[in-house]
Amino acid sequence: MLEARLGETQLLKKIVDALKEIISLSTLDCSETGMQLQSMDNSHVSLVSLSLQTGCFEKYRCDRNVSLGLDLKSLSKVVKSASGDDSVTLSAADKADKLLLSFESDNKSRTADYELKLLNLDQDHLGIPDTNYACTVQMPSSEFARICRDMSMFSETVVISCTKQGIKFSANGDLGSANIKLAETSKGDITIDVEEPITQSFAGRYLNTFTRATPLSDRVKICLAPEVPLLVEYSIEDYGYIRYYLAPKVDD
């Protein structure tokens, strides 16, 4: 059976918020090392990968591998009903058809139990090859969110160019054009590692959707390489991550 306790429901709320705009149904695979989830969006343009190692949890027990087919909209409704500082315990039997969520207030005076029906999802899992990225940029996640929002006012397509001098985001549309450049800073809040310069184009609305994960981490890592999807990674405390992969736009 599975029993996993998070000290604060806030973390689960943030994770669900980071997933639900991009995927609606997904399987959470639980094993003794933690929880994993991988799904493509409906258009198969992006892939989201979530990993939560056991260190994310106050208590974690998973005797046998269990896959939980989740409707994220339903899960979102359940976690919304709990207070952020409640603890939450997820539990499921070995061949479960439902997930139990038990919320407990700080002073243990209020408990709330929910049963969520599980779905039998037949999902494809994709192999993500190890990639030696040409450019790796780290910046405050709030800065990335702001740039993605500002870019999307101008065009559906955002061009990202990265050189040793910095990273540039450009959008060109009916309104005009926007260019935002960031250079590496001496205080280390923006770091830019470039093996070779790269320019690629991406759909801005996906980038914007990825920034739903901003509350999970102060920092975001952006990795680019020629002919491979963009990687946008938010770490989750010290023991997990959410990674978004976005296929580039290519010349017709």
Partner: peptide
């Protein structure tokens, strides 16, 4: 420009 698919980069396991 044309949007490529993630499945043209990552193959099914």
């Amino acid at each position: 420009m044309q949007q490529s698919s993630i499945t043209s980069f990552f193959k099914q396991k």
